[in-house]
Computed example of a mutant assay.
Amino acid sequence: MQNKNKTVIRTMDLLNLFLTHTKLTVNDMIRLSGIPKSSVHRMLGSLADMGLLTRDQDGQYSLGLLFLQFGNLVAERLDIRHVALTDMQRLRDETDEAVHLAVRDGDSSMYIEKLDTDHPVRLFTKIGRRAPLYAGASSRILLAFMPEEERENYLSEVEPEAIGIGTIVSKSKLRELLAISRTTGYSFSRSELENYTAELSAPIFDHTGQMTAGISIAGPEGRFGEDRLPELIGKVRQAAYEISLKLGYRKQVL
């Protein structure tokens, strides 16, 4: 049993080399892994036979297409609501505010999960609620991290309308806020969808580095004062980052 475990560990050591190298020769793998030459040759034969590695005409090895198949299956089977739940619960408990998970649906955002707070004064929202991409922190964070061409197409066509007393209806102001969000990694709104409420959101990225959702906290505007905002921003961004890591995201936190 010990020999089998050792072989598996050594095999993973070889495969892990390809996390930072596109192609490697046999000698490269021997040098980088420290595994004996005879063992490397034996493992490479098995990995190539299984389709986990492929060898080109120059004798260099790279990851096989089987990894692409497995990677796509993992990505397809990840339920972001399930993946995010633990971090959403922790964020709710740390901030004592309602927590939402939102995704883009066409020109709207939609809450696909929500955790309520026990606070006696709280915001009443529900799963399935939609909002235009220009209004509210959850919507605007999705808009901010959309591909640039899609974002500009949307902004050129949309005509923002007031929903709450704080809704941003100026396109120039909207573009300014979107640029700030892309720099700071969060979006904040006051009274944009409902008067006297506030929302703070951060983007969630998947294994490809693309934004896939947004996580937010929301509640009465009075609980989002300037003295409390820095702490709340840090907690929301950290929750978004932790969820992103679980989805395979590997860039450094902003």
Rank of each mutant, 00 (worst) to 15 (best):
M1P: 07
Q2S: 12
K4A: 07
N5L: 15
T7S: 14
V8W: 01
R10A: 07
T11N: 06
M12Q: 02
F18C: 04
F18T: 02
T22P: 04
T22S: 15
T25I: 08
V26C: 10
V26K: 14
D28Y: 00
M29H: 06
I30V: 14
L32F: 06
S33R: 09
P36F: 06
S38P: 06
S39M: 10
S39L: 11
V40A: 05
S46D: 13
M50R: 02
R55P: 00
Q57A: 15
Q57T: 13
G59I: 05
Q60Y: 04
G64I: 05
F70Q: 08
N72H: 08
N72A: 15
N72T: 12
R77G: 04
T86M: 03
R90T: 04
R92P: 01
D93G: 00
E94T: 06
T95V: 06
A98C: 13
V99R: 11
H100Q: 10
L101Y: 03
L101W: 01
L101C: 01
A102D: 06
V103S: 03
R104Q: 15
D105F: 00
Y111W: 07
Y111P: 08
Y111E: 05
I112V: 15
E113W: 10
E113C: 12
L115N: 05
D118I: 09
H119M: 11
H119I: 12
P120N: 03
P120D: 04
V121F: 02
L123M: 12
F124N: 14
F124G: 07
G128Y: 12
G128E: 11
R129A: 12
P132W: 04
Y134T: 14
A135L: 08
A137I: 09
M146D: 10
P147E: 03
E149G: 01
G164Y: 02
G164L: 13
G166L: 11
I168F: 02
I168D: 03
I168V: 15
E176Y: 09
I180D: 12
T183R: 14
T183H: 10
G185E: 06
G185D: 07
Y186L: 11
Y186N: 04
F188E: 11
S191F: 06
S191Q: 07
L193F: 14
E199I: 07
L200G: 07
P203L: 13
P203V: 09
I204T: 02
F205L: 12
T208G: 00
Q210W: 02
M211V: 14
T212E: 09
T212K: 13
G214Q: 10
I215Q: 03
G219Q: 03
R223I: 08
E226N: 12
P230W: 09
L232M: 14
I233Q: 11
G234M: 14
G234C: 12
K235W: 01
R237K: 15
A239S: 13
R250G: 04
K251T: 11
